[in-house]
Design a binder for these strands. Structure first.
Lengths: 137, 137
DNA sequence: TACATATAGTTGCATAGCTAACAAAAAGGA
DNA sequence: TCCTTTTTGTTAGCTATGCAACTATATGTA
């Protein structure tokens, strides 16, 4: 029915990938959204929520709530910004630092598996095209 | 950070497309999920919920609740199957038949816009690849 | 300075999606 | 036939996501 629909095929694939990554991050007690956000925070501590939201392409309410979750789990800490008292900077806790490498390793494992399944060339090519489409929208 | 990640780019694009299609179906009072499901039901009335769930690549609880929504809006009707009394067949109501053409027209309009933006060749190529990846997973 | 506008975050309320647990009916086998 | 297993749907409870509305602070301008 929707074989040629970009929306249908994109969202459908997104659900399949979501299931794949859910399994990968389960040992950490993290959902894919939480895990990817945490990886971003670990890679660059001190980002403002606004920038995190832009970077992950979600709205600020979504970012606010995902951070609530990570905060409750003890993986991140929010501190008021010095430069702009409206803004809030986000930092990883020690608990997050401990799993940093394992988290990246788990991610790398899934990517490797998918690349093997699809072929590295095909994998990279599709990702590039997806990025190009996102940029065009 | 996740420039080369299939999951990240797919889900990110999915969110952007979701926003695009949300606007398109708003005049009908339908969300994209509801609208695509309704189009499926209009195209082939009498499908069982199980088959609809498989076709849309969602779980049965999700299908059940999306149908609850369409049912509450008066667009679909559920009838117990004769062959298998466990099963439930789904039919469009007259209210749905009335908007059938407009719904497809609205969808076609968005697709046309996206094809123009991305180029028809690129569009079709990406969709084919997404389908291939879905099939491989 | 004072007021209007813009920006950062949160909260309320909605849908979409999942897993787990359940009820009911069908299918299969001893 | 009777019992086990499988299948179909629903319900409960969770996260993810969005929009609208709100608070608080910053910025820009008269």
């Amino acid at each position: 029915m929707f074989e040629q629909c970009l929306y249908f095929n994109t969202t459908s694939l997104a659900r399949k990938l979501e299931r794949e990554w859910t399994v990968a991050f389960k040992p950490f007690g993290l959902t894919p959204s939480q895990a990817f956000l945490l990886r971003t925070i670990l890679a660059k501590p001190g980002n403002h929520q606004r920038d995190l939201a832009d970077g992950m392409n979600v709205t600020t309410p979504t970012m606010s709530r995902t951070l609530d979750g990570l905060s409750k789990l003890g993986f991140v800490e929010r501190r008021g910004s010095d430069q702009d008292t409206r803004g809030i900077q986000v930092f990883p806790t020690d608990k997050a630092l401990v799993i940093h490498d394992e988290l990246n390793a788990a991610s790398g494992k899934v990517t490797k598996k998918l690349k093997k399944l699809l072929g590295t060339g095909e994998f990279d090519d599709v990702v590039s095209r997806l990025k190009a489409i996102s940029a065009a929208l």
